[in-house]
Design a protein around this nucleic acid. Structure first.
Lengths: 344, 344
DNA sequence: ATATCAAATGGTTCCGGTACCATTTGCGTG
DNA sequence: CACGCAAATGGTACCGGAACCATTTGATAT
């Protein structure tokens, strides 16, 4: 019985395909393929035999081949560094939803330069993904062209009010969130509200947030002063620095709205170092509702955007389109929440 | 000139291949392929013409086809949820190194059950990656078999002392880190040191950390007491709870070693709520050196493991093997650092 | 019993880059 | 001038799942 092809022989994965399985069961390759993707088209008895052979052989269908025929189940995504903010949560949401939908996720890191952006898109397109999700996307014209001509559906996760989206968009209105927080602070009695953000230039989100802050002040009958605003690097140390700068400029500032929790947390630590009471000496508000915002002392008042949900929704949007459920280039605005804690 | 094939015509990406480019330039498909992967084998003049045509047509080579011929440049990875701890950093490191090496990264979320683990591995293998990186891997026998028979190199990121690795391993010795921190606390004068971790069962890392803590106590001539240890969920609230539990059990506890910064931070917040001075009333040490550990008040003494570097090294290991530079099943141990701040 | 039709299954070809081997070109040397 | 040799290039088959169409089977209707 040496070397007999007994139907259960283990071959290395490389030599195993639908043809081999088919031969062992005594059916056509096509039948095996159907068991994999349209099981209902195969008679239960046949299906059982095929599945058994697949199991016995340890056969793992080659998804590359499927993809080449346009039935691939991969979605590609370009995201900013995972280290900051809620990007990790968002990726988690995307990943979970992908997995639930039976898709795999190819992750490419995006940079903020035009060339890097183009390179990322090219890398993605090289794998002919069924769909793509782009985050913090600058939209160079070449990249744009490339994406459109690929014919694959695209979801951009970004500021809702961004210019001419490529296809679908999922995001929040940063204008509204910042407007709402500013009004919230005013409602709590603060009169002199500063604004701190990371560098705004070229960043839709931050522009919208500042605009929302301005709009709220104007509506409150408060004049905007550039000296009430600072830009610092996105670190806790930056937040601490901003607190110092603003309070030295204006001793009567009674609240500061930070465009990121990381900054706000840095500022809170700085207050501790100085022995300033929060919120009595100064009110602190953040943006993002990081895990730690709630555990901080005092707990941080902040804007909560559910990044995890944003990731999920982006993928859902894509899968709905791929499943034919949704034909239109939708724009989905997710809600947000002002989390009122004790820091302001 | 209507419908003329002028050599610069834009077709949808789906219809463009090496054959089409070859036709436009007037060379064989093989020559185009060579320009893409072995440019040196093609005469400079020919190469230039081909590149020009590629540029003009917006041709993006199909990597799926390359992969099918075994020359693919994709690495697959299974990682735990990105939301906790330093996983995000690690993924960042892997991603950066992949991109630098010209590889793409397929990201699959792993769960801790045997079935989910197997499913993740199957998903990965379906894409026939050139190599794989596995994190927090339980190693069910089936999954193991699957991986070995795939023939692709595998790097596990895990506790160094884990049982029978599949292939290569990158990680730190959790025993040594915990041992070192415990000795460090003792050297600072603490006599009664508690230990708090997330659930240990089935987790190599945490087991090793506890064992390291025990070894240090024994060496110090201190008897281990189970009542000096608690397990809590991996949240800041869990850390706060653990602090309460331990100090109620033993009023004379003077330091607690938390197996995660998240826990330690929760405990620090709890101390603030109770008005306990750190480190006078109690010393707090963490593990991980999260971004916030340094900004906390007081700054957190902790164990720093460079997760970003771990991710990079894992990929490097893989690419070295793929490039034929390294044939052996290496085990790489990364160093660590006791970051001595003010909380203990 | 025979026509009708749906369900089940088979045969073939294609997707696109590349390994393998064959062929051509160009140049230096005896 | 013929030969040898290397560089450059071409032709073809292949990886493996799936679309497409053809064919067979079995059950129901008339």
């Amino acid at each position: 019985m040496a070397n007999s092809d007994d139907g259960g022989e283990k071959k290395p994965l490389e030599r195993l395909g639908v043809r081999e399985i088919a031969k062992r069961v005594g059916v056509a390759p096509m039948t095996v393929s159907r068991v994999l993707s349209n099981p209902d088209m195969v008679a239960p008895a046949t299906r059982a035999k095929v599945l058994e052979a697949i199991e016995a052989a340890g056969f793992v269908p080659n998804r590359l081949a499927s993809s080449m025929k346009g039935t691939g189940r991969m979605i590609g995504t370009v995201v900013p560094p995972l280290i900051n903010s809620g990007i990790a949560e968002q990726v988690q949401g995307m990943s979970d939803e992908c997995q639930q939908g039976g898709y795999s996720m190819l992750l490419v890191q995006g940079e903020f330069t035009t060339e890097a952006e183009e390179a990322s898109i090219r890398t993605l397109l090289g794998w002919r993904p069924a769909g793509m999700i782009l985050q913090s996307f600058v939209q160079s014209e070449v990249a744009r062209q490339l994406l459109v001509s690929s014919g694959a559906p695209v979801v951009e996760i970004s500021e809702i009010k961004g210019r001419h989206p490529i296809d679908m968009v999922v995001g929040v209105s940063n204008f509204e969130t910042a407007y709402a927080m500013t009004m919230h602070l005013a409602a709590k009695g603060y009169k002199r509200i500063g604004f701190v953000s990371t560098p705004i230039h070229g960043n839709d989100r931050l522009q919208q947030r500042r605009t929302g802050y301005h709009a709220a002040l104007t509506e409150l009958g408060i004049k905007n002063h550039a000296s009430m605003e600072v830009e610092v690097p996105i670190t806790a140390a930056g937040g601490a620095q901003a607190l110092v700068t603003l309070t030295e400029r204006h001793r009567d500032i009674d609240a500061i709205f930070f465009s990121s929790d990381t900054l706000a947390i840095g500022a809170v630590q700085e207050c501790h170092r100085r022995g300033w009471a929060i919120p009595d000496r100064i009110g602190i508000a953040g943006y993002g509702d990081m895990d730690l915002a709630a555990q901080l002392y005092p707990p941080l008042t902040t804007v909560k955007v559910n990044r995890y949900e944003m990731g999920r929704r982006a993928v859902r949007q894509l899968l709905d389109r791929l499943g034919g459920k949704q034909k239109l280039a939708t724009i989905t605005s997710l809600g947000f929440e002002i989390v009122d804690r004790e820091s302001a």
